[in-house]
Design a protein around this nucleic acid. Structure first.
Lengths: 125, 125
DNA sequence: GTAATCGGACTACAAATGTAATCTATTGAA
DNA sequence: TTCAATAGATTACATTTGTAGTCCGATTAC
């Protein structure tokens, strides 16, 4: 039986993205990394980080004077879980519907589309 | 300037999906439609519906003795907005990354993939 | 006509989330 | 050595969300 992964909020995702990018990192590293992309106060980031630790989504190394933090799950695992539930809720389970919409709407550039073609073609028929 | 659409929660999405499927509908219609897919009590559904009305996401026709409800935004509009923010948060903005993952993971069936190929090929190069 | 029922309005209440501030012990700077 | 800056722990507090329940007036079934 797989333990199911704890769910994380939107804000918590931002923290995780920083940690998935590079780990371990200190709280300060994370605060710094989010300085530009958000306008969260350091204390806010700290709270989010602590919550992730409580949820057992992030681990802490307390051996050094300043703690370092690291993800306990891979990004892929979370991406898959979130995407599945997202697609189900938003597109009734059909990833295809989403793609059709995005392709038809020019949300994807021509280059993107060409790249997709080549990705698809790498799959054996 | 576009008014930005109110954000809706996961549970509220379920209500909206019912209304997008068919509208207008009475509260009872909606309760009935969600009977199988959820185990929400009628009052719960009613609350969610009322919140959507307050948020101006759902309209009400009070001319009949029993109110009827209808969406004030198209499903496509909501899908686009949600998907955009989702992709940004989860895949760093790259829809492509998501696809690569799904294609490589066999989440998409061979038929799906063929269908995508044909959709892509309909786009002019 | 009277009681049970139903729809709508209003109220309830805990957990999760967003967004920090305060308190305390340690450490580094002067 | 003493004081200020820091990190970590603890506490705060409004909003949103999940999940209903209660109250009241209209309607329906007897």
């Amino acid at each position: 039986m797989e333990k199911n992964i704890p769910s994380i909020s939107e804000s918590e995702w931002e923290i995780m993205n920083v940690l998935w990018d590079k780990a371990p990192q200190t709280a300060n590293d994370i605060i710094f990394a989010l300085q530009e992309s958000t306008d969260w106060k350091p204390k806010t980031i700290r709270t989010l980080l602590d919550r992730l630790v409580q949820k057992d989504v992030v681990g802490v190394n307390k051996n050094l004077k300043v703690y370092t933090f690291f993800p306990l799950y891979t990004q892929e695992k979370y991406q898959r879980a979130e995407t599945e539930s997202f697609i189900k809720r938003i597109y009734g389970g059909a990833l295809k519907s989403m793609l059709v919409q995005f392709i038809q709407e020019d949300t994807l550039s021509d280059e993107d589309i060409n790249e997709l073609r080549s990705i698809l073609n790498k799959k054996p028929r």
